[in-house]
Design a protein around this nucleic acid. Sequence first.
DNA 1: CCTCATTTGTAGTGATCACTACAGATGTGA
DNA 2: TCACATCTGTAGTGATCACTACAAATGAGG
Lengths: 205, 205
Amino acid sequence: MAMGRPRAFDREAALDRAMDVFWRKGYEGATLAELTREMGINPPSLYAAFGNKEGLFTAALDRYSARIESYLREILAAPTAREVVSRMLHGKADYLTDPANPPGCLYVQGGLACGEDAKNVPAELARRRARAEVALRERFEQASAEGDLPPDAVPAVLASLVMTLIQGMDVRASAGATREDLHSLVDLALAGLFPPPAAAPTSDG
Amino acid sequence: MAMGRPRAFDREAALDRAMDVFWRKGYEGATLAELTREMGINPPSLYAAFGNKEGLFTAALDRYSARIESYLREILAAPTAREVVSRMLHGKADYLTDPANPPGCLYVQGGLACGEDAKNVPAELARRRARAEVALRERFEQASAEGDLPPDAVPAVLASLVMTLIQGMDVRASAGATREDLHSLVDLALAGLFPPPAAAPTSDG
DNA sequence: CCTCATTTGTAGTGATCACTACAGATGTGA
DNA sequence: TCACATCTGTAGTGATCACTACAAATGAGG
């Protein structure tokens, strides 16, 4: 059995380049011409390896998800709900403005509203954002069972608020918000979500 | 002086249809074919009236901004900072899920990441979102001067947090979040931002 | 070395993109 | 009534889109 000519490019490295293009331009704004140029391969190689543009996007997204979800698991291992949220939001502030990556998060930059040929893209991105929210909610349910959250706290609502903040931070980062901007709004959000026990906000006058 | 054949379509009504298309599909996902079909006009009429696709988008955006900013002015007239934020967030929860409109907000759905031909679009949308944030920050500065906010509150950071929530809610709405979802996370956010003075969060046991 | 499965680069494919030339239609002013 | 300025519909324009036919190249079995 002959095995055929071996692939001359590194699949994972090429996916990283594709991820970068989709991240900066969105699914619809990324053209095959730019993708192949950045990946350093020709269209037939791309189509043989990934099927079509959407297949390439999904493969790049899978690679992105693997990173994100590995990082998320680390964060969810933090001892308290407050610590989980703090690391998640402050970590996201750093990640969204990391000069090594395009600004923002591929889960949002990929495309929120697309045309007919790309209608799967917003749905797929929403699905992946929802996965993170489920993991966060489950972590809050555990915290609630451990007495680590006030008894009236609703894990699902808390998780949805944290995810809302994260997605809002993403919109801001893509519009040029600085790392400091994001950290300071995270500080304020954390103070509201997990008020320091001894401080009396409106005591003196 | 002859005045030429009069325009046969209603400019404002046509812009409303175009706004709807851009809102659902984003700038890049909206094709001229769909725009002209929905607007009920032919390409030459569109180009005579609006110049090109970007001109049409800007005109639709201007119409959208006029509505948004008029509504924003009403909200900023609320007597207290807390009331401003409450009306803004709860109002946004209703607006983002209003079945009369596409889900989400045109300022975000229009396009966060676009290709080379549309690079002005994300920047223009960011500029308009920033306008709302400035108005909100100025309202908080007024509240701060009136003693309506705690002395350590920073209006700019508070405004950026509220806008972050709004933009995050937009991402969620475009992904199918229900009106109830949004209202409940807004309730939680409001309780954190403006804690009820008499309630002791961790008193009983 | 030969066969064969697969990849690679070249050079395209039809479809669709935003956009427009053109001629007929339409209403205004003289 | 007639010239003119503008709009309207038909029917395209070249450019670019995602995608592919094809033959040379490449290396693993036999």
